[in-house]
Design a protein around this nucleic acid. Structure first.
Lengths: 229, 229
DNA sequence: ATGTACGAAATCGTATACGATCCATCATGG
DNA sequence: CCATGATGGATCGTATACGATTTCGTACAT
C-alpha cells in the first residue's frame, strides 16, 4: 500500500523500526500486559503495515527479552515471576555497577548538581506519595550516573535491563514500600562517593549494592533467599 | 521451493534458524572474515532458501553484534579494531566474573577434576605450540567454570561475549605471546579458590582479573592505556 | 460423563514480486 | 582537469500469496 503511494518522501525510518519502537513503548509503558498475545496480522492491520516488518520487530523484541516466541504459535509479552525478576535485577546490578564505575571519572559538576536536584525531587515524591513520578525520576537519576559510560556494549546492556524492568510492574517501588526512602539515602551516598573521586571498584560495589538491596527487599518479602552476589 | 515439496516431513527447525546457525558458525569460525559483505540474495541462493528467513537471521546476528547492518545498504561481518576488542573484553570480564562467581557454589568435584585435566592439556599445547587447540580447550575450561551459573540472562551474555570474541582473530593468544603461559597459572589459582569455597566476591574479582589481564596485555602492546576496571 | 478423533479456523513460515534506495560510472560543463 | 549531475545496476524493504502447523470446538464411542 505504501509502495503505491509515491507521494511518500521516503520514510526516514523503516517500518520494522517503527513497529519495533511502537511495540517496545507499549510493552515498557505497561499498556500491553505480560502474557498478552501478539498476533502478527492483527498488529500489521492496526499499524497499516504488512506482517513482514512486524515480524522482524517481534524478533528484535525477543532478542531483548521483552517478548517470548514460540514456533508456529506466536509471540506473547514476556511474563514476570519472582525468578525472572531476580535474574533481571541481578544482571542489571552487575552491569549497571560496572557502567556507573566506568562513567564516574567522566561525570561533570553539572551532572552532580542535576543528580542532586533529581534526588530532592525524589524525596518530594515520597512526601506527596507519587510512585509513578518517583519511578520516572529515579530512571533519570541513574541515567545521569551511568550515561557517560564509554563502553557502548555495557551501556546497551544497561538500557536493555531497564527496559525489561519497566515492562514488569514489580519494578515500581509499590511492592516494597520501605525501600524507596532508603533508596534516596543511598543515592546521596553514591553521589558523594563519585564526587570525591573514590576508587572505581568502591563505586562499582556501591552502585551494585544499591540495586541488590532493592532486589533483596523484594526477595525477603517473597520469603525467598537473597541474591548470592 | 520448499513449499512445493510436500514430501518434507516438517522441518524440525525453521529455515531462519538454520540460516542463523550456519552464518554464526561461519563467522565465529573465521571462514567469513570481518568486513565481508553479506548479500541477502547471494546467501539465500546458496542455502536454497528465499531471502526472508536469511534476512531474519542477519537481524538476529546484528542483535548479537556479529554483523553490522546499514539501512538500504546491507550487512557486513562486524569488523574489529582495538576499541571494539577493548569493549568486548571489558564487558565479558564483568559478565563472566559474575557468572563464574554465581556458578562457583554449584561446581562439583568432577568439574574441578575435568578442569584440572583441561588445564594440563593447555600446558601441553604450550609445549607443542598448538594455538588453535589452546583456544578451543581454553573455551572448554572456562565453560566448566561458568556453566552452572543459575542466572540464564547472565549465561546468555557470557555466550554472546565468547561468540563475539571468537569472531575476532585477536581473541587467539597469538597476538600476545607471553600471556598464554601466565593464563594457565591463573587457571590453577582460580580452581584452588573455587575448590576452597572462597568468598564469591573474591572469586568474581579473580575471574574478572584473569580476563582483564589478557585484555591489558593486548592494550599495552598497542600502546594503549589499560582497562579502567 | 469423559476421553478421543476429526475437521475447521487461526496463525505462522516462507516464496515470490516489485517499488525504493543507494552506489558507481560516465557524460557534461566550467 | 576537476566538479557536478544524470543513468543504470545492484541491493534492500515490504506487500501479497499460499502451504504448513497448531489449536480449539464438536461429534462420536466407550
Amino acid at each position: 500500500m505504501s509502495t503505491l503511494t509515491p507521494a511518500g518522501p521516503a520514510a526516514a525510518v523503516s517500518k520494522s523500526e517503527q513497529a519495533y519502537e511502537t511495540l517496545k513503548e507499549r510493552i515498557t509503558s505497561g499498556s500491553l500486559v505480560p502474557g498478552y498475545r501478539l498476533v502478527l496480522s492483527t498488529i500489521a492491520d492496526e499499524l497499516g503495515f504488512s506482517v513482514v516488518p512486524v515480524r522482524e520487530a517481534l524478533r528484535r523484541l525477543e532478542a531483548e527479552g521483552l517478548v517470548t516466541f514460540e514456533r508456529n504459535v506466536g509471540a506473547t509479552v514476556a511474563g514476570v515471576d519472582a525468578m525472572l525478576y531476580l535474574h533481571t535485577m541481578q544482571t542489571l546490578s552487575v552491569i549497571e555497577g560496572a557502567a556507573t564505575a566506568l562513567a564516574a571519572p567522566l561525570i561533570t559538576a553539572e551532572d552532580i548538581t542535576r543528580a542532586r536536584y533529581l534526588n530532592r525531587e525524589l524525596r518530594a515524591c515520597l512526601e506527596n506519595f507519587e510512585p509513578a513520578r518517583f519511578s520516572r525520576i529515579n530512571n533519570d537519576f541513574h541515567a545521569i550516573l551511568y550515561g557517560h559510560c564509554p563502553n557502548p556494549h555495557i551501556l546497551d546492556l544497561v538500557h536493555r535491563g531497564w527496559n525489561r524492568l519497566s515492562a514488569m510492574r514489580a519494578s515500581t517501588f509499590d511492592l516494597v514500600p520501605g525501600r524507596a526512602r532508603q533508596s534516596v539515602e543511598e543515592h546521596e551516598k553514591l553521589l558523594a562517593l563519585i564526587e570525591s573521586g573514590a576508587d572505581l571498584h568502591e563505586i562499582e560495589m556501591a552502585a551494585r549494592a544499591h540495586r541488590t538491596a532493592t532486589l533483596n527487599a523484594y526477595m525477603a518479602q517473597q520469603n525467598q533467599p537473597p541474591s548470592a552476589i
